[in-house]
Amino acid sequence: MVFQGLSLPGIIKYYGVNYKSFEATEDQMNWYENLEKSGSGQWWVIRSKEDSKFCGAIGYNDFNKEHNKAEIGFWLFPEYWGKGIIQESANILFDYLFEDLKLHRLEAYVESENESSSKTLKNLGFNYEGRMKDCEIKNNEYISIDIYAKIKT
């Protein structure tokens, strides 16, 4: 399922990775596994309430214990977009991160063209903090990244 999600043009258009073969997703699966082993993050499957079908993933990475912060990420199959699934999943994740892990700050880095994720983050209570202009290269072109943050209240 991870291969299906991270090979779909609608998902990977603004996502940091993409895969052209099932075998290639092993790198991503190892990344998820190593996050948990190292204590630097964890990702979970998101399942539909109606039929328990796999519909995406959500998690955190780059956990920095010294500064009590981490980065959030998420993706969904297109047929689940706009249904409040990320909102519900993220609120559960926030409880864990802010209460159990005692995070003070949660960050999100979004390609500046990704209006949908920016809107989702704003709806989740993240504040726009700025833009890193032409800070990464993707498909041989410079892209800008917007920074969002949610502070524990």
Rank of each mutant, 00 (worst) to 15 (best):
I72T: 01
D95I: 06
D100V: 09
F3P: 03
M1G: 12
K69F: 14
G130P: 10
E141R: 07
E36L: 12
F3C: 03
F94E: 02
L35Y: 05
T120R: 13
F77E: 00
F22P: 09
K37N: 06
A149I: 09
F94W: 03
Y96I: 15
Y15P: 02
S112K: 03
L6H: 03
N139P: 08
F63V: 01
I46H: 03
Y96G: 14
E111I: 12
Y19W: 00
G125M: 14
V17Q: 10
L121F: 09
L103G: 02
W44K: 05
G5N: 13
G73V: 08
K83S: 01
C135N: 13
Q4S: 15
N114E: 01
E23I: 12
F77C: 00
G59A: 00
G39I: 00
Y60C: 03
F126E: 14
C135W: 15
I137Y: 10
E88C: 06
R105C: 12
A149V: 05
E23M: 14
K133D: 08
S89F: 00
S112Y: 01
A90G: 04
E26H: 01
S144F: 06
A149Q: 05
D134N: 09
L97F: 00
N127L: 11
S40F: 15
F94P: 10
Q28T: 05
S38V: 03
T25N: 13
G5A: 15
Y19Q: 01
G39K: 06
P9L: 10
D51Q: 00
G16V: 09
Y96L: 15
I143E: 04
M132A: 06
P9K: 14
E50D: 14
T120N: 14
E113Q: 08
L106G: 02
E141K: 10
E79F: 11
S21W: 08
Y14F: 05
N114S: 04
W81A: 02
P9Q: 07
K49R: 04
L106I: 09
E88M: 02
N139W: 05
Y14K: 04
L101Y: 05
I147E: 08
Y60D: 04
Y148V: 06
Y14Q: 01
Y142Q: 07
F54R: 08
E115I: 09
S144W: 04
D95E: 11
G130A: 09
S118Q: 12
S89A: 08
Y142S: 11
I145A: 15
G16A: 03
E107D: 13
K20D: 12
H104V: 03
S89T: 03
V2E: 11
S117D: 07
I86M: 01
S118L: 02
K53R: 06
W75F: 05
K152F: 13
F94C: 12
N91V: 07
I46W: 06
N61H: 10
G10A: 11
A24R: 09
L6V: 05
E99N: 12
Y142T: 10
G16E: 11
I151C: 00
G82R: 13
D51I: 06
Y109A: 04
I143T: 09
E115T: 10
I137N: 07
K102S: 04
L8T: 09
E71T: 10
K133C: 05
E36A: 10
Q87A: 14
